[in-house]
Simulated assay, not measured.
Amino acid sequence: MPKLLSKTTIASIAIAATAIGTIYLTSASRGNNIVNSSNSILAKDNSSPATLVSIWDKETEPNYSGTTEMTVYRSPNCGCCSVWVEHAQKHGFKIEDIKTDEMEALKQKHNIPPELASCHTTIIDGYVMEGHIPVDDIKRFLAEKPDMVGLAVPGMPIGTPGMEAKDIKQPFQILAFNDKGEVEVYKEYQSY
């Protein structure tokens, strides 16, 4: 049985990172005709179509056969949330993308403890998924169908899906929480 965490511990885990809205691009292979920029690799002649390249693109749960329809609630002004939505779509999820200025009320409605809050909230198969959770972990959680409210990645850790920035990868935990406010570590990423 995983160890339950105190609210103080959870609060110290939450990383208050700034949304930086970085774009990560690469070009189709054209020999050595590529140039490195601060956050991307682009063809020198810019003639190649750019595509998102992410460590999170690799699917590790390919046999998932559960629900693929999810509703994502996010601020209309949040760029990192739209990158996370693209991450989920690449892994076969169909997204109802709802932009709202009522995020605080939505989080209260779904009983998300404030110390677990992040920038976007996803509802799928009756579960709440808060923040920048890798979708393969969501797939695994949904397949297990635990007696929990959902998962959360508190704050906005740099390196998570939608929050990638160069080679910066902050350690982070995916936390599972129940309707009693109890929280446990579901998965931990130290180096990835």
Score class of each variant (00 low, 15 high):
4 L>I: 06
96 E>G: 00
129 M>E: 08
11 A>T: 12
58 K>G: 03
60 T>C: 02
69 E>G: 06
108 Q>E: 15
47 S>N: 12
19 A>G: 15
8 T>W: 05
62 P>V: 03
32 N>M: 13
109 K>W: 02
134 P>Y: 05
5 L>Q: 04
93 F>C: 00
65 S>V: 07
68 T>D: 02
106 L>I: 13
67 T>G: 01
76 P>N: 09
88 A>K: 08
71 T>R: 07
44 K>F: 09
133 I>P: 02
106 L>H: 01
72 V>A: 07
90 K>H: 11
122 T>V: 15
107 K>E: 06
52 L>Y: 07
79 G>F: 04
64 Y>S: 04
108 Q>I: 15
89 Q>R: 11
95 I>E: 11
85 V>W: 02
57 D>E: 06
41 I>Y: 12
67 T>D: 14
92 G>N: 03
9 T>M: 08
86 E>V: 04
56 W>Y: 04
4 L>W: 07
41 I>H: 10
83 V>F: 01
65 S>H: 08
70 M>S: 07
48 S>D: 08
112 I>R: 09
47 S>E: 13
7 K>P: 13
130 E>G: 09
99 K>I: 00
50 A>Q: 14
126 G>K: 10
83 V>R: 12
63 N>S: 11
70 M>Q: 08
116 L>I: 08
15 I>K: 15
88 A>S: 03
106 L>G: 02
